[in-house]
Design a protein around this nucleic acid. Structure first.
Lengths: 258, 258
DNA sequence: ATTGACTCTGACGTTACGTCATGGTTTATT
DNA sequence: AATAAACCATGACGTAACGTCAGAGTCAAT
């Protein structure tokens, strides 16, 4: 079941040296080591290695990748979603460059000079870098920000790997449900019920989410662009929609309480 | 009209240091230098810089790029065509990786494990590297190989830039014509006529292509994989088709001569 | 018992720049 | 005309992500 280093290297298409390097960098340590010092990798490490490959493909530095993967709230699904967006962004750039080559070919064929302004625009990376920065900053700042999040961090530390998958899957489920309900008013009973499920999910998975905290969280969704961007990935405008719905939800709880 | 180094850097989106680096590496020297040592670049250098950017985008090393650009028979049109092919190859790879991300996302969502064989296949670069190697090797070996080619090299040195464009355009034209005729037999009069045009083109543009040399060239097309690959870029199988047609062509000339 | 394929840990090399440091040059402004 | 602000030049060292030995131990099979 455990693979030796060359098996992994051949399998993945990288060098043994690279795995040594990742080990020393703390990016990917072998699952175990034999008495004689041989590194042994398991499927779990292969999975992590795949994540690393995705990030590397996107031009992330090993340092950054380590930081992201080591982040306590690292969510594989969310990472994959972000990676997909970034890869599509990269494809867009590539296509622009291909278009530029074709344009240049035509210009050379026709013996005419190209418009200097267009000659290099396609090489621009700022769009991709923006997305990269966004994602890194998001995972970096996601935790240790508010009181509630500190609490969540502690609770989160106790979860096993399998739990995380279930939790984030449930989260994505609710996001999607709410995204589908965006055609309705935030006050609509269906929406309010989904919001209730959202609060329950937070309480179950992270921390006791009181109405006060929940209201503050709603504010955060529109005030902190990191949250806005993250939530709007499911569907643009979802963050604002949820924020309003959460406020109405808290209002109605307050009313009932009196 | 001439640009100073920072103007170029800002325009292209690279650093001044990079231009310094390219200068020292002999990859891109400024068109002129002021008395005080300031580098001055003109549109011609911008054009070359664009070529460099294309190659760099494709993962070519600076050494390799220099070798290609300095090659006596460097043909911008051909280079652009090759670059386009390589970029499309790169896009194919990217799309495979995007597909992999989606597949992985589904697997994580469904809570199932992925097929290990598929987990890394998309990262494979060998296809791209093959193309890269091919192109470099092609430009490297294209000249100075056979007697005829040595002759061609001399003749070619006298051409002006504009001539080159016309020559390779005419070459591409004949290739395309022959590719379209591949449904016919190599012995078909139409094919034989196109082959005659091809020999004429070589004689006009490069060297006096005797039937003997022409026959040898036909052999080269299938024996030397660099030629095969180069020709088959227009259409797979074209090299073999041309080789056969060229032999028949030379046979019929020999018969006539008697 | 030995061969061949693998593994380990250094340690230096490489590519394509980044990042100062130091000092001269141009251009704009006063 | 002086002076600041922006620009340029040449070293020279730093860095990221490995590549490439070297020297020595390990393992599986013959």
């Amino acid at each position: 079941m455990p693979y030796r280093i060359k098996e992994v290297a051949d399998y993945v298409g990288i060098s043994v040296r690279t795995l040594h390097h990742y080990d020393r960098a703390g990016l990917l340590k072998p699952g175990s080591v034999t008495a004689s010092g041989y590194r042994l990798y398991t499927d779990s490490e292969l999975e992590k290695l795949q994540q690393i490959m995705f990030f590397r493909e996107l031009g992330f530095g090993l340092r950054q990748i380590k930081e992201i993967l080591d982040s306590p709230g690292f969510d594989r699904m969310q990472a994959l979603a972000a990676q997909k967006i970034l890869l599509l962004e990269k494809e867009k750039r590539l296509e622009a460059i291909i278009g530029l080559v074709e344009q240049t070919l035509d210009a050379v064929k026709g013996g005419i000079a190209m418009n200097k302004k267009d000659m290099f625009r396609a090489f621009d990376m700022s769009e991709i870098e923006k997305h990269q920065e966004h994602y890194t900053e998001e995972t970096r700042q996601k935790y240790g920000h508010t009181e509630a999040y500190k609490e969540s961090q502690k609770k989160a530390a106790s979860y096993k790997k399998e739990d995380w998958a279930a939790i984030s899957a449930r989260g994505a489920e609710i996001y999607q449900e709410l995204a589908d309900l965006m055609v309705l008013s935030p006050a609509d009973p269906q929406v309010q019920q989904a919001i209730g499920a959202w609060r329950q999910h937070i309480t179950d998975s992270y921390y006791n989410c009181t109405p006060e905290i929940f209201r503050g969280l709603g504010d955060l969704y529109v005030q902190d662009e990191r949250f806005t961007a993250s939530i709007d990935k499911t569907k643009p405008g979802l963050a604002r929609f949820m924020s309003e719905a959460m406020h109405l939800y808290c209002d109605s709880i307050a009313k009932k309480g009196r």
